[in-house]
Design a protein around this nucleic acid. Sequence first.
DNA 1: AGGAACAATGAAAGCGATTGCATTGATTCT
DNA 2: AGAATCAATGCAATCGCTTTCATTGTTCCT
Lengths: 333, 333
Amino acid sequence: MSKPTIYSIAQRCGVSAATVSRVFNRPELVSPRVREQVTAVARELGYLPNPAARGLVTGRAETIGLIVSDITNPFFPLLVRSIQRTAERMGSSVMLVDAEESAAAEVRHVARLRGRVDGVIVASPRSSSAALREAAKGLPCVLLNRPLRDLSSVICDNTSALFDAGEHLHKHGHRSFALLAGPSASWAAARRSQAIRGWARGRGVELTELGPFRATFKGGRQAGAALLETGATAAFAFDDLTACGVLAELAGRGVAVPGDRSVVGCDDVLLARTVTPSLTTVTAPMDDLGATAVQVLTRQIEAPGGAPEHHRLPGVFVARDSTGHSTGPRSTS
Amino acid sequence: MSKPTIYSIAQRCGVSAATVSRVFNRPELVSPRVREQVTAVARELGYLPNPAARGLVTGRAETIGLIVSDITNPFFPLLVRSIQRTAERMGSSVMLVDAEESAAAEVRHVARLRGRVDGVIVASPRSSSAALREAAKGLPCVLLNRPLRDLSSVICDNTSALFDAGEHLHKHGHRSFALLAGPSASWAAARRSQAIRGWARGRGVELTELGPFRATFKGGRQAGAALLETGATAAFAFDDLTACGVLAELAGRGVAVPGDRSVVGCDDVLLARTVTPSLTTVTAPMDDLGATAVQVLTRQIEAPGGAPEHHRLPGVFVARDSTGHSTGPRSTS
DNA sequence: AGGAACAATGAAAGCGATTGCATTGATTCT
DNA sequence: AGAATCAATGCAATCGCTTTCATTGTTCCT
């Protein structure tokens, strides 16, 4: 026999299809007797409502789109998990799309998703603000880690955690610092650099700015090499991956960490704990970030055209083994 | 005005909706003049076909489901990317679901996806064969890294690469080996252990089996500790993550790699190249795995009830820095 | 010239659900 | 008792699209 529909159920129960539909959507409108019978028959037949049919009339897909700039970036897995969990709790599925680091792909995918989803979350977008605004026109949308006045956003703000990192290093005797800047197109990179500059100025310590470097392991190695050209005893890497590159480069050149230099990363990805020495870094509240994004999106879907919301969640500084007491300034090599 | 439909376009063009529909689906049936006009008007109105409506009549969602056992496992990102790329080329979107390492969640998600997708790929399932079989009943399904007679599967077979690894170590003078086994519920773990046992037997070398250990960094540290209790100079870790744990443990105890011991991992995840020393491991042909899985699934969707296909793609051994010459058997600590 | 073959189009029937409105008894109120 | 109210249900329209079948000119044979 073919797939069971509300009609086959209705027939078996001697009621109309409308009643069957109501059993699932507004059960309180149906008499208990009928309700139970329908439920029983539905289970027996293995009935599952057809989402396409339902979507056609309700206009809802019960699905949200999630576009990540680069799924191979270890920053994302936990975020994806958190978003998915929250979405599921709201009764929605998640359609994940990897933009493979391409800004063009991002907007292309937003267009592609339109119609298949009720709204979309764009995580760490690389696209220009104008392109994002245009792509999201008329589609509920939440930006993650990228603020934009007219679109809702949820960002992880590491400013104060980076202050803490600076203080931590300062307390350990460091006085000369290096800032290994991340990709110039990244909002997060700009923000972090700004935070560190601000801290250094306030503290009145010396800060050498290097970069920008690519946010990859290789970029980190270059950053590490550049670091050694300076007299800085402590370095702020853009993120953990970069920091790992730095560690590798230093290790390769026989420079001890944290003995000779201290390094701090950012994001607290899996890698941060598995590398030796384990990375001092800034933990992002992944669960909150994802959950908040989904909630904001849901609100946006339910009240289209509502005012955009902006949320700012702070990261938390974590001291591990890649930072320690300064042994004073060093010569270059 | 509301969303454009084939009707608004039809009206504007003075043709019937059927014609508009044909312009998009069977353009060769429409006269060039009309075709161009319709295309132009559609673009002007920003028309996008409604997937729900289309799906309702065609019975296709143009979407495939992808269930991964644990998205935080660094093994998956590249796989996801490859699957997505291939799916997109076939005109399908991907609905990703993370089972969070729970077998129950896997089958629950298969059920949830049914109806919303045309078929599903289950990557590295943890569920029992019976549960998988039952869950996939009547739904096109491809298993990744888990063979099962009556369901299609695509697996990565590292047997010969692990032989190569063994030979590589043997050539470097190693004669006493340790097998650090992975989780007993994992098919891949069983398979790898078996391969290594086979090789050792054939080679006539000493093989100490340890474990099973969890496939996590922590599990790796335990494995590392256990390794030091033995006289083995070379160890096969279940995967790269475990291997990294081993490296960390050894480093922590002042044991040099590859000076004192050699370690090989498996999978060649990002981590493998970023760790110091870089890991000798076995590279899985991610792109092929993903592409093959999607292709098989597509075939399965087009010809439901067709015979299941089974594909076996070999991994490739890569020598890096975590393996080297044996300095002979060592004492315990 | 008369009909076969064909190309281009339209009319209309679904696909499987939701939902506003109408209908039907039963209950309550005055 | 008759009207008003209410709970439970059915009817039928609708969502936007695909697709079969019928219709209409055209072109091409013989």
